[in-house]
Amino acid sequence: MLAKRIIPCLDVKDGRVVKGVNFIDLTDAGDPVENASFYDREGADELTFLDITASSDKRDIILDVVRRTAEEIFMPLTVGGGIRTIEDIRKLLVAGADKVSINTAAVNDPGFVFKAAQRFGSQCIVVAVDAKRRRPEEWGRHIKESGRRIPDKNSREDLTWEVVTHGGRQVTGIDALQWVTRMEELGAGEIMLTSMDFDGTKEGYDLSLTRAVVDRVTIPVIASGGVGTLDHIFEGLTLAGADAALAASIFHFREHSIRAAKEHLKERGVPVRL
């Protein structure tokens, strides 16, 4: 039986690991390769680097990080953040990444996902989707920070989600549920789904969103954004039916170990690799 996956995510800026709360307030915390080795020893099933380096002249630092990581750890490595071109993808794969995650570039040009999947195979193309709960009449309208609401993650009300980019600062007018179907058709091998309402809140994944996406696509779905407890991971993998659970801060700040997370899941009947 296929095991559910636990994926720690490391935010990397200028070659250093950082972790933002709601993508703001970053605190520097160490060497990506050392962190990767730590997660490897703890039994992580995969590892994700999210490169949040802003300046273009420092974009190649991540390649060196990937290269050094690939020498140390022997599990799947996904790299996302700032990927714009086929050449960006090729460089990352040659450096040792197994998959790349594409976010804004897919929104700007959905055909890019098709081209990337044709060139490198769907298995290495992850489409990262950042979604935000919004009423249809709000779509495409700028999100006011003061107007931000954190609704009930189990909410049964008729919810709609809009695809957003740039950490939620830019709206797209795209329906997230239609978007994931389109991405699958264009060749995405996996969806990494982040709730921008719950990311950084430690209230758990947006279960309604995750369930809706899992029901829509046949490719694997990675739940992301909002994990604060081990039960949140359990909920995401069972109630919402995600194939993998991605979390950053609870592992990064050692609040829980990956092994503890897996034992928690195993005790509750979830198939995991221990």
Binding site: M1, L2, A3, D45, Q123, T218, D243, A244, R273
Partner: peptide
């Protein structure tokens, strides 16, 4: 169907 297995078969298996 509803509880279909995903394709690709992606992840850890025995």
């Amino acid at each position: 169907g509803k509880d279909r297995l995903k394709i690709p078969h992606m992840g850890w298996n025995r």
